[in-house]
């Protein structure tokens, strides 16, 4: 009798790659979904007052359980039209300049800041380069370090390199359970190291970009749980989890003076990576 063909044993599911796909899930709640569920009387603040208004970054004032807070977040679109309008969540320099402008006005009046990170990366295009994408990100990193009110950063999906970090210099930085944060996208990393972007799953594992990895490496402060199956299954439940962490952080950070807030943030980033020297 002829031997029956045997199905090759399936490769073990790559946990990191599954997380990447969840982080990019088309139904995953975006910044505006969280804003709608967490804040009352939200009013958007537009524009960088020097070039334009970038729809890939949403910013504005709102109240979190009656506390006034400034909100800044990267916004992806849901349908094709929205995706194009939001430039797939890839901010341009005017977006980052708007972000720092509203953070500075919040600090002026002693208001805490909440940022939502969710971007494949800062936009790599001719116009963005011409208007100083690098300078805009660099300035945000330095000026966020100077802000003397609490900053809480929550990575809700894709933490795409410098494009996410430009809103990510916080006193407390959280990742949602299935969010990722990486120095380079797994596809680009695979294109460089394996010369083919199709091996992104391997690169995703090598980059250590899951929430657990980042917590272990000492780069984030906590992981916010998601409802079973992921945030895309139940946006209300995901927002409720975010609410708990946000309340705790604002309470804790509210105890610190303005000088202590700046020092707290500085010391946190100052030691990053030193363990590995």
């Amino acid at each position: 009798m002829e031997p029956q063909p045997v199905a090759a044993p399936e490769a073990p599911p790559n946990e990191a790659w599954q997380r990447v796909q969840l982080a990019r899930h088309p139904k995953r709640p975006h910044t505006l979904d969280y804003i709608q569920r967490l804040f009352t009387e939200f009013h958007e603040i537009h524009g960088d007052r020097s070039y334009g208004d970038d729809p890939a970054i949403v910013s504005g004032m709102g109240f979190f359980e009656d506390r006034p807070v400034m909100i800044v977040g990267e916004q992806k679109g849901r349908d094709t039209k929205q995706k194009l309008y939001r430039n797939f969540g890839m901010p341009k320099p005017e977006g980052y300049r708007k972000a720092i402008r509203v953070m500075q006005v919040a600090a002026k009046f002693g208001r805490p800041i909440v940022t939502f990170l969710d971007t494949p990366g800062a936009y790599p295009g001719i116009d963005a380069e011409e208007r100083g994408q690098a300078e805009a990100i660099a300035r945000n990193l330095r000026e966020m370090a100077r802000i003397n009110t609490p900053i809480v950063c929550i990575c809700i999906g894709e933490g795409g390199s410098g494009g996410a970090l430009a809103l990510g210099v916080g006193n407390h930085v959280y990742l949602l359970e299935n969010a990722i944060y990486s120095v380079i996208s797994p596809e680009s990393c695979a294109a460089i190291i394996y010369r083919e972007s199709a091996r992104a799953a391997e690169a995703a594992a090598a980059l250590r970009l899951t929430a657990e990895d980042l917590l272990r490496l000492g780069l984030i402060d906590g992981i916010i749980p998601e409802p079973p199956g992921g945030a895309q299954e139940d946006a209300d439940a995901a927002a409720a989890c975010v609410r708990e962490s946000l309340r705790w952080s604002l309470d804790q950070l509210g105890l610190l003076s303005a000088e202590e807030i700046v020092a707290h943030r500085y010391e946190k980033f100052r030691q990053m990576g030193n363990f590995f020297l």
């Binding site: 990193l141 390199s161 970090l165 980059l207 780069l219």
Partner: peptide, 19 residues
């Protein structure tokens, strides 16, 4: 790339010191 997000965070660390 070979140091992942640790490399990324050096950007914030240095920029903070420059502040």
């Amino acid at each position: 790339m070979q140091e992942g997000a640790i490399s990324l965070m050096q950007m914030a660390k240095i920029s903070g010191a420059l502040m």
